[in-house]
Amino acid sequence: MSRPLPHCAPTRRLAARVSSTARALAVTTLLALSLAAPRAARAQTLEDAELLRPRELTATVMYGHDAWNAYWEGALKRNNDNIGTLSTNSVAWSAGYGVNDRLTLLASLPYVWTKASEGVLHSMQGSQDLSVMAKYRLLLTTVGRARLKILAVGAAGVPTSDYTPDFLPLSIGVHSKSVTARAAAHLQDEMGWFLDGYAERMWRSNIKLNRVGYFADDQWIESDEVAMPDVAEYRGTIGWQSGAWCVPVGFTWHRTLGGSDIRRQDMPFASNRMNFTMAHAELMYWLPGVSNLRLNLGAAHTLAGRNVGQSTTIMTGLTYALHL
């Protein structure tokens, strides 16, 4: 039985040249891209249905830069001269480990810093949320001449510092603990074309603010505790991989399942209904002459949104693989 090739990992030709243990390492990029930074980086993921090979260990570092100068105040798209351009930078460290053919574990921790180009609001920075993810292959089969893989993915996130969620849009995150369940599918043909996608639901814990109360859902809530609505996200990607190259492009639909709009001329709030639709493209390339090292590039742009900035994001980073 021939062993299936992970997509966006080295092909057999490349694998013969570099170490075979370098296969499949690209998967860590998924976590680096999808869980780093507040939401900019969530825009892009790679190889959602990818698994590391047994006893493969990967390390990825990704730098991300996200910026917007227009945002949606509820449904109203506007600029704000007192913010100018809001930029979010992040450096995310990730590690991945292939437990066996079916199970891959991942962890990621970004450091994030934000800045407004105009106005008087103070920049914020800090270590954001640690994410851990387990990906389990439920099914591997062939459909005609293509290979189909179905995965169940579980993830959890927890803040690693006491950054404030009460200073959006400059807060580096919303400081909620989360659990995510995701179903992912990947279909790849012999030519290297692939389709993949996922649907996920994220459950979020309530958060605490340093306040006596706050206005949300059209009422004053005399409490320091904020109920955080859950989140659904859907992604579809089409791509092609050959030799050292892999190029996926796609769309992401992010929907917050509750929460209220930013009111006219109000500041954003952690439990707002933050929705967005984003287009993204990535490029991964195994560096010639260097074993086990891959360059990752990504870009994304928000097409439509609600209570979020219209971000444009670029990301770049390296992934290194080691076979234990």
Partner: peptide, 26 residues
Amino acid sequence: QRRRVASIASAAIAIVSCDKTITAPS
């Protein structure tokens, strides 16, 4: 390792699946 992952996940679910209702003290 699988068991560990499962126990981390179930702990995390316990954290976030509690009642989210906020009741004003008054």
